[in-house]
Design a protein around this nucleic acid. Structure first.
Lengths: 210, 210
DNA sequence: GTCGGATGTGAACAACGTAAACATTAGGAG
DNA sequence: CTCCTAATGTTTACGTTGTTCACATCCGAC
């Protein structure tokens, strides 16, 4: 079958088409909008067809969430790349700041994608899944632990506080992103949220590296 | 009609019965379990009856969430009361620590209730709603801002950093509670989560009051 | 006592997730 | 090339959900 011929009985790569359709639905509408029927409808296929590629509706949502998670990784990587200072200490610090900035920026830029990436029941295994990796081949969680490990390696953070620091960073940034997208802060204007997010991230990293 | 006579056509106080039934469903099962039909079923009433007291399914969930929010306020108040030190500075500090501890303890003790309290689309108006107040007549959000205001009044926190401190505290605690109940940390044993939560809260308050 | 507004019921509808039986096609074995 | 099988998509159906509308019942004010 020729790729792009949507008329034929078989689709060719329906799994990818469903993921793409689901991601579009998630972008405006969040996880709730990624219904099995709406997704198959958008892919021009009958509802039951999805069951040849996903065991259930939840698995479809999880797979779409993985797409979003990969975009989250890319957002983090972009913000990490902005290391003006080539010094290794400042660089390591910027790597951690970039995790927070990229996390928050992604949530504010595409709240629907952020929603489906994090709303689902992602477990700790999910934290290392290849399909959630960014350009550098690392998942969002790995980018965080890498940044922390670098700081420990440079003696900027005591090793026995590394794990707690990682959880604290993740908690703060995730909490702020949630409050700013789904929570009571979601009505606030975007520039204000950007400024607040930046101050929170820098303030937290400052506090941890002391 | 006599109260408690469930046989009569009219219920007496169906609104309260629905809220109570919905809260029970939420306690095991989270917000997702609070379906309109399940709630009316448990109250021994037809599905459509709910529409005499709530405009929609979402409003029912929101009202049940308010019940949970009030319990959250009570949990915070309980933890705030543990101020061993009568000194006013240590007391103010404990008020803030109590917010974090009570928040996390509530989430870990009754994740279903925590879910419906925070998952819904609560806006900033909701943050002051009377039905979400605890014993002291203050909502969770007010308990947080009160604690911060006290610290400012005692000169322990610069006034211009009060708002940012409030958002940071909320973000961190909310993020940790989310990660520990719905997120990747949910499999971890309870005592470990308690210890981590306590360390995060104390560490954060220490960092802020410097 | 009667009547009106408030409150609960019943039946119906569209949308959803899911399963089972059936239709169509791709791709390898001969 | 042909044929067969496994993979993939369709159809139909079922139960559940939120919601609406016409109807039934009851409380309380007059």
């Amino acid at each position: 079958m020729k790729a792009g011929n949507t008329r034929s009985y078989h689709h060719g790569d329906l799994r990818a088409a469903l993921l793409s359709a689901g991601y579009e639905l998630a972008r405006d509408g969040g996880a709730e909008a990624v219904t099995l029927r709406a997704t198959t409808r958008r892919a021009g296929v009958s509802p039951a067809a999805a069951y040849r590629h996903f065991a259930s509706h939840q698995e479809l949502q999880l797979a779409v969430g993985a797409l979003a998670m990969a975009d989250l990784a890319r957002s983090i990587e972009t913000h990490q790349a902005r290391a003006d200072d080539p010094g290794s200490a400042a660089r390591a610090r910027q790597r951690l700041v970039g995790v927070g900035e990229g996390y928050i920026a992604f949530a504010l830029d595409s709240p629907g994608a952020f929603d489906i990436a994090l709303s689902g029941l992602f477990t700790m295994e999910h934290a290392f899944a290849p399909e959630t990796m960014g350009e550098t081949g690392r998942t969002p969680f790995e980018l965080l632990t890498d940044a922390i490990a670098d700081l420990v390696g440079l003696g900027l953070l005591p090793a026995d506080r590394a794990e707690l620091a990682a959880i604290t960073c993740w908690s703060t940034v995730h909490g702020f992103a949630t409050l700013a997208t789904r929570g009571p802060l979601r009505a606030h204007p975007r520039p204000e949220l950007d400024a607040r997010g930046a101050r929170i991230v820098r303030g937290l990293v400052d506090a941890l590296l002391r």
